[in-house]
Design a protein around this nucleic acid. Sequence first.
DNA 1: TGTACATCAGTGAACGCGCGTTCACTGATGTAC
DNA 2: TGTACATCAGTGAACGCGCGTTCACTGATGTAC
Lengths: 256, 256
Amino acid sequence: MAYTRTVTEPASPRPTPGRADGIRARNRAGIEAELRAAARRQLAEVGPAALSLRAVARDMGMVPSALFRYVSGRDELLTLLIVEAYTSLADAVDEAHDAVDPADLHGRWAALATSMRAWALANPHEWALLFGSPVPTYQAPSEQTTDPGTRVSRLLLAIGRDAALRGVAGSAPFGPATRAADLAAAATANLISEPDVTSSGMSAVTLANGLATWAMLVGAVSSEVFEQFGPQTIANHEAFFTYQVAIGESLLFGRG
Amino acid sequence: MAYTRTVTEPASPRPTPGRADGIRARNRAGIEAELRAAARRQLAEVGPAALSLRAVARDMGMVPSALFRYVSGRDELLTLLIVEAYTSLADAVDEAHDAVDPADLHGRWAALATSMRAWALANPHEWALLFGSPVPTYQAPSEQTTDPGTRVSRLLLAIGRDAALRGVAGSAPFGPATRAADLAAAATANLISEPDVTSSGMSAVTLANGLATWAMLVGAVSSEVFEQFGPQTIANHEAFFTYQVAIGESLLFGRG
DNA sequence: TGTACATCAGTGAACGCGCGTTCACTGATGTAC
DNA sequence: TGTACATCAGTGAACGCGCGTTCACTGATGTAC
């Protein structure tokens, strides 16, 4: 069937009705790309809370109402930007992570953390959009943002899983082991029963350590990007970050 | 001279020119209090980015221009709120902390962390104002915000100092001790030479552990307040927070 | 290949909104003598 | 104690601004026959 169809159809390339290759479709794709680019520029310039449709239109040299052909309103523009930002962050982290020998668990964690910080410092407003205070009146649609938004944390948990598989995962990082295990079990009750997890040999403690490491990493980066310590408190942010990465390392893999 | 003047002045209490006890002064103090209260209500309702002078005036039943008698503009209102929020947070933490036996270092840290989280959950918009992304176009005047803004972190460092004085401070929490010490020294170079610190017997590692614990605590609270994990990831936020507090504990005091 | 009609992209004007801030004003409170 | 004047609190109108969104429109692109 498929074969016959292919044969009967004309070989010469011409615009097929309904297909996405007419002049309009090509233009549309082009404008959509321009829109994304302009939105990113605006976001980088004024930040998430001050982002406006009109400014984006101005940046594109268009009239504001024209944008409604491409986007249903300001909220959809924000969603677009969030997905783009998550993707950009995760791509950057993936690239750094994938350059490391998969057997080098410590190196993979360091690459993840370091590239995340670098991305955040290069894109502070994007970082604020993803990890800062929520934008007033806007609620991100989880169907679209969950998947790209969890790429990096899933990668972090995968490193923890690999450590568990090799028997080098960190144990309870404090106090009586039973208490830590109880807390970890309570905190991760939702995750621990997922197929991914059950098949991976991760304990609740390994999961909890991974999640805590993630929260710590986000906190470390945010404290630097948002300048939560004053200008004089931390003498060397890079050294302090490295210090915190090492703490995370000892959480993930136990004390070296 | 001063004596003569005091004697010649009438002893009876009556409104003295320039003193703050006429009808106007009393009213003024009352309105200033109302203004603060209305601003806090507005902040709690709409969040920092959407806060407006006009809404505050409406809340007070006044005309917007009237507020300019009390405040030079929107930015001063924000500064007011920031100072109030820092103070409210620090008061809450102090109260919880001071209820604990000073010799109980672990208990003091737990009280600090727990009360900070409780305050944040009760006042999420205030938390966002202090620890979320910066408000666009607004820059906090450090002369006014630094002091109240560092009360809690200074308290945390004081707990670390007390641990150091008693010889129970946590050591380098990872890897080769020399590397940790080098990183800590680089990160804390500005603080380590302050009189408070030099006289206290705190090492760079103790300082760095305290600062890292602070960043971790802020990160843990923010991740919960801003719902950075989706709604289903963490089954029991309280347990997860306790887990993270215990990690901080082992940073501050070494492994129990 | 040519023509009539349908679809789509972008324009331009307009809407109603809330914002921060200014300004001249009225009436009450305070001060000097 | 009484009067003339100065200070202050709050009003009301107005300014210019940028915002999101709607709507009727023109002209180009695509479709059917």
